[in-house]
């Protein structure tokens, strides 16, 4: 099942009530929030209303908040060496 990944890039401040209402309905309350919705006509219509403000991609699976956070986290730059297993000889 395909999903829309919608990210609010531009704020809706000062836009008409209808646009701000759509943002609120989709749960986009602050810039850079990301939400996932299954592809459907009703969501597509909502995206068309706010297309100037958002970034939309079609993805296979929605990511949870924790997964998105982990994906953003940069590489630690080190790894902890583990003790090698004892070999019987």
């Amino acid at each position: 099942m395909a999903y829309f990944r919608i990210t609010l890039m531009r704020s809706g401040i000062g836009m008409p009530k209808k646009v701000q209402g759509v943002l609120h309905a989709l749960g986009l309350k602050k810039r850079m929030t990301t939400v996932y919705y299954p592809v459907s006509q009703s969501v597509a219509g909502q995206i068309m209303r706010i297309k100037e403000l958002v970034d939309v991609k079609e993805v296979e699976k929605p990511m949870s908040k924790e997964e998105m956070r982990a994906a953003r986290r940069p590489d630690k730059g080190y790894y902890v060496e583990k003790r090698a297993e004892h070999v019987e000889s």
């Binding site: 395909a2 006509q41 597509a44 219509g45 297309k51 970034d55 939309v56």
Partner: peptide, 29 residues
């Protein structure tokens, strides 16, 4: 920015087309 809007419309259109659906708003655009 113009190109971004074009991309979003085409993304929405292709995603709906894969389900065999279409949207009046997208078609009109």
């Amino acid at each position: 920015r113009l190109r971004g809007v074009d991309n979003i419309v085409s993304t929405v259109d292709s995603a709906l087309a894969r389900l065999g659906q279409s949207l009046k708003k997208v078609e009109a655009w």
